[in-house]
Simulated assay, not measured.
Amino acid sequence: MKIKIITVGKLKEKYLKDGIAEYVKRLSRFAKVEQVELADEKTPDKASEAENEEIMAKEGERIWAKIGERDYVVVLAIEGKQLPSEKLSQKLEAAKTAGHGTLTFIIGGSLGLDPKIKKRADLLLSFGLLTLPHQLMRLVLVEQIYRANMIAQGSPYHK
């Protein structure tokens, strides 16, 4: 099994890098984890709606190029489903048993995601209505993927 995490923008903060590295290390017993950081487009101040759509389309093209045809794609989107950790674990396990070799998770840029990417998703997932920095969301996501694997294993990690 392979887990791919596609994100728009670079991770700069050391404390977040360290936290993500810890969970990636823990996840390595379940799957190979690939982290794909894509360049974000510069957004001008007071950009028009058309400019924002163009930026999301450019970022979307970069994301699309990294998605495999048979990947099970989970897109983080505020309008997505909110699932308890147990249900997320069940969904990811079902995707694995359905023959998806790669679970691909996508976090878009600061403007959001191109609708084409959302349409490709097998699951639109929301971690709530809070607005979090994308870098922090990466840490939360990796921890939840780890938690989902531990739940599937019956581990007491999830209490």
Rank of each mutant, 00 (worst) to 15 (best):
M1S: 15
M1N: 07
K4H: 11
I6E: 00
I6L: 07
T7E: 02
V8T: 09
V8A: 05
K10D: 10
L11C: 12
K12V: 09
K14S: 11
K14V: 01
K14N: 14
Y15G: 09
Y15C: 10
L16S: 02
D18I: 05
G19M: 12
I20Y: 00
A21C: 07
A21H: 06
E22I: 03
E22M: 12
R26Q: 05
S28M: 06
R29M: 10
F30W: 04
K32Y: 08
K32T: 10
E34A: 04
E34D: 11
E34H: 04
V36E: 05
L38M: 13
D40K: 06
D40S: 15
E41V: 09
K42Q: 12
T43H: 10
P44M: 13
D45T: 10
M56N: 08
M56I: 08
E59D: 10
G60E: 04
I63Q: 09
W64V: 05
K66V: 02
G68C: 02
E69F: 05
E69G: 14
Y72C: 03
V73T: 02
V75I: 07
L76F: 00
A77C: 09
A77K: 09
K81H: 12
L83Y: 05
P84R: 11
K87S: 11
S89G: 02
Q90W: 07
Q90M: 14
A95G: 14
K96L: 14
T97A: 15
T97G: 04
G99N: 10
G101D: 14
T104Y: 05
F105N: 06
I107T: 07
G108V: 01
G109M: 07
L111N: 11
L111V: 10
D114P: 06
P115K: 11
K116Y: 12
K116M: 14
I117M: 15
I117Y: 08
A121D: 13
D122N: 15
L124A: 03
L124G: 07
S126L: 02
F127L: 11
G128C: 12
G128F: 06
L136A: 13
V140Q: 09
L141V: 03
V142N: 01
E143C: 07
I145Y: 00
Y146E: 00
Y146S: 02
R147H: 01
R147S: 00
R147W: 01
N149P: 03
M150Y: 09
M150N: 05
I151M: 06
G154S: 13
S155M: 07
